[in-house]
Simulated scan of single mutants.
Amino acid sequence: MVEKIKNYLKRQLSSGPKVISAVLLVLAISTVAIYSMRKTVIVSIDGKEQKITTLSSNYKSALGNNSIVVGPKDKTVPSLDSKIKNGAKISIKRAVNVQVAVDGKQLTIKSAEDNIEKMLEAEGIGLQDFDKVSPSKNEALKDGLKVSVVRVQTKEVKEIKAIDYATVVKKDDDTEQGSNKILQEGQPGEKETISKVVYEDNKEVGRKVISETIKKQPVQKIVAMGTLGVYTPSRGGRVLYKDAIRMRSTAYTSNYADTGKGPGDAEFGITASGTVAKRNGDSYSSVAVDPRVIPLGTKLYIEGYGYAVAEDTGGAIKGNRIDLFFNSSSEVRSWGVKWVNVYVIK
Rank of each mutant, 00 (worst) to 15 (best):
E49M: 11
T108V: 14
K137P: 02
K181T: 15
Q220D: 14
L120S: 02
L107G: 06
P295L: 00
L63T: 02
N280D: 15
I210Y: 03
D243P: 07
V205K: 06
V276Y: 12
G336I: 03
G274M: 05
E331Q: 14
V149A: 04
G47L: 00
K242H: 06
T40D: 12
S79H: 08
V332K: 13
G264N: 15
T31A: 12
K83Y: 10
I109H: 04
S330Q: 09
A251L: 10
T154S: 11
L240T: 07
L27R: 14
V96R: 08
R207H: 01
D323H: 00
Y284W: 13
K146R: 12
D129P: 02
G229E: 02
D243W: 07
R207E: 08
A251P: 12
L240Y: 06
G281K: 10
W335M: 00
Q187I: 09
R151K: 15
R11M: 05
P17M: 11
T313M: 12
V168N: 01
P78E: 00
I322T: 04
T108M: 10
V219S: 09
S283A: 15
S249F: 01
L120F: 00
N180H: 10
K51G: 07
P233A: 06
V230E: 00
V96F: 09
Y343W: 08
D173A: 12
Y59N: 02
G124Q: 09
V100F: 07
